[in-house]
């Protein structure tokens, strides 16, 4: 796989880790094999501080293995990785204290109350005993205040996930790994979670979030799309959409349907790369930059007396983007290489 490196700056974030904006995570040709099974192959990327890095891909695509290599749970079979300037296997305590990790599965103790679990996590990170205020704020942050005395075994699934998130944040980590934090929870709560993540980002935290929900890509600053252990694309959400289709799409709805010659002439327009759809009076074209091409196309239509009902950029849902990307990944890469 071609090495990719994309940097995204987080707007308005407070940088705790490194004022010089050195990459928090640097992975180079990471590969992990379990006997004959190649779980992750040739992963290379960098994550700068203060961004939300999304790892997206179907189940078994290697997201969790990647996170485990980044956190030092698994050593890579090949390749090299540094996190906060250290190889994960050699993290000193001071670095471990800066890392928050929320595993994929619920990891807290069902016999303990919400408060006792939070206390356990705080002690695990060696926090001093004057921690009541911090823990209270965290529970408030995940909207679990008032449930402190409830036994965790009695909480709903959504509350457990929120508690997990709060427990992951007890030591005020700089870098947070969240492995499928929104798996198995309802859409409303998922949106709340991402709202929390945005809040954390605003506090200057760097986050690595894995998800199976393709739509959640939109919340990330940088996205790595994984399939069968490979990172098939690494870009911003908009960049992924753009690269998947080779440009941006514009939907044009005219009052009367275009005739054959009008359509053929439209396809020959300089900005138009490809006509994607023609259904009655609805035409969809692919252009390089929708914002730049739309005035040109509107002028062209008006010059020919074609009455336009609506013209707008079409943003295909990320679910579709993801499917198209997976299906056409080789073609896309070939085109990119040719360019």
């Amino acid at each position: 796989m071609t090495e990719q490196s994309v940097s995204v700056e987080a707007a308005g974030s407070v940088k705790e880790f490194d004022a010089t904006r050195e990459a928090v995570v640097q992975a180079h040709n990471l590969t992990k094999r379990f006997d004959d099974l190649v779980a992750v192959q040739d992963l290379s990327f960098e994550i700068e501080p203060g961004v939300i890095f999304g790892l997206i891909g179907p189940s078994g695509s290697g997201k969790t293995t990647t996170v485990r290599m980044l956190t030092g749970i698994f050593p890579p079979t090949e390749g090299d990785v540094t996190v906060l300037g250290y190889h994960p296997r050699d993290f000193p305590r001071s670095i471990r204290e800066k890392i928050g990790y929320m595993p994929q599965h619920f990891f807290l103790y069902p016999q303990l109350t919400v408060w006792e679990n939070m206390n356990f996590m705080a002690s695990l990170y060696g926090m001093n005993l004057f921690r009541r205020k911090i823990l209270g704020e965290l529970l408030e942050f995940v909207e679990l205040n008032g449930h402190e005395r409830k036994k965790v075994g009695d909480l709903s699934g959504g509350m457990k996930r929120r508690l997990s998130l709060a427990a992951t944040l007890v030591q005020n980590p700089t870098l947070i790994f969240l492995d499928e934090p929104t798996a198995g929870i309802d859409p409303v709560l998922r949106r709340k979670f991402w709202s929390h993540f945005q809040g954390l980002k605003e506090q200057g935290k760097t986050m690595v979030v894995t998800t199976q929900y393709v739509g959640e890509v939109a919340y990330c600053d940088l996205v790595g799309v994984m399939d069968q252990g490979r990172m098939i694309m690494l870009d911003t959400p908009a960049g992924i959409r753009h690269r998947t289709y080779g440009g941006e799409m514009i939907d044009i709805v005219t009052v009367d349907p275009l005739d054959y010659s009008q359509v053929a002439e439209l396809e020959r327009q300089a900005d138009v790369k490809q006509r994607l759809l023609l259904e009655g009076n609805h035409v969809r074209v692919l252009v390089e930059e929708a914002s730049e091409s739309m005035p040109e196309l509107l002028r062209w239509l008006q010059d020919r007396g074609i009455e336009v009902q609506t013209m707008e950029e079409y943003l295909p849902p990320f679910d579709d983007v993801f499917v198209d990307l997976i299906q056409n990944v080789d073609v896309i890469h070939q085109k990119e290489n040719n360019v």
Partner: peptide, 13 residues
């Protein structure tokens, strides 16, 4: 089995 050991591996304990 509950996955807590994973957390311990990352934590400073």
């Amino acid at each position: 089995l509950s996955g807590t050991m994973e957390l311990f591996r990352v934590s400073p304990i």
